[in-house]
């Protein structure tokens, strides 16, 4: 008998073991829901799968009686735009700041402490300020996402820039490179896959800020909808929406991971080598 530490599951066992907890959760939920609905058919707390499916398809496929819009798609569209614009701004700013601070010691000495302090400000605490300054429109939500994750991305890129082997920068200089060329030809391309990794890691936080901002001040969006129907205890809408949001962020994560492997094969291989 091998030591437990050395026992690894085969591919089929691996998939099965990965699915097992999910299946268990679904089965447990179904059992609990059935039991409650049996006792009280009007129960709202644990809706059955058919109820959730009905509610979800109503949101997705039938126009709203009040506005004539297909609510799920309108919500998804406005949330995704806010999220993507916010994340894009954060990625560009974070990359820019991170590379400059990471590669220029003078800038680093001047701004690194500020960046550290900024990253410690809880973004949700300044949401009221954003609402006052930018109003309750789209801008305040996008700014919240950008402010929330830029410091994280910037610090991650700053650290990765500083971790580029010194030898490479020395070598570039012996080949005649100046500072601008080193930043654009050596540092920036090597930071691109790191940026994608950093964005992947900050997606969770971006969703958090998005939903919080939508819950507080909005007229549409996935977060708005969840908090709106909470008033009617519509678990049959909330749960599918949560699953839908999870699915969206899962797909975004996979897409970014694939992009990284596709565009920057050297990054992936290098990591495998180092691990």
């Amino acid at each position: 008998m091998k030591k437990v530490i050395n026992q690894t599951p085969g591919p089929i066992w691996g998939i099965f073991l990965g699915l097992l907890p999910l299946i268990l959760i679904v089965v447990l939920y179904a059992a609990a829901s059935d039991a409650r609905l049996l006792a009280n058919p009007g129960d709202k707390l644990l809706p059955g799968f058919d109820q959730m499916w009905n509610a979800f398809s109503r949101m997705a496929l039938e126009p709203s009686k009040r506005t004539g819009e297909y609510l799920l798609w309108v919500d998804t569209y406005s949330s995704m735009i806010r999220l993507l614009v916010g994340v894009l701004i954060a990625a560009i700013l974070g990359m820019f700041l991170g590379i400059l601070l990471g590669s220029l010691p003078y800038l680093n000495a001047g701004f690194s402490p500020l960046l550290t302090v900024t990253s410690l400000v809880p973004p949700l605490a300044i949401l009221p300020i954003l609402l006052i300054i930018f109003g309750v429109g789209e801008v305040s939500k996008i700014v919240l996402i950008a402010i929330g994750i830029t410091p994280f991305i910037a610090r991650d890129i700053q650290r990765s820039t500083q971790n580029i082997p010194r030898e490479q920068l020395i070598k570039a200089q012996t080949l005649g490179a100046n500072s601008v060329q080193m930043i654009f030809r050596v540092i920036t391309p090597q930071m691109m896959p790191k940026l994608i990794d950093a964005v992947r890691l900050s997606l969770g936080a971006a969703w958090l800020f998005l939903i919080a901002a939508e819950a507080i001040a909005s007229t549409n969006g996935l977060g708005y909808r969840i908090f709106l129907v909470r008033r009617y205890m519509s678990m049959d809408i909330i749960i599918p929406y949560v699953v839908w949001i999870t699915l969206l962020s899962f797909l975004m994560d996979i897409l970014l991971a694939k992009l990284n492997r596709w565009f920057y094969p050297w990054h992936f291989k290098e990591q495998a080598k180092n691990d």
Binding site: I170, A172, Y264
Partner: peptide
Amino acid sequence: NEPSAEIGVVFQQYSVFSHL
């Protein structure tokens, strides 16, 4: 006081650009 194009160098590792 800094590396320049008059001197070439080869290190034991990290001597080439990994992204190219």
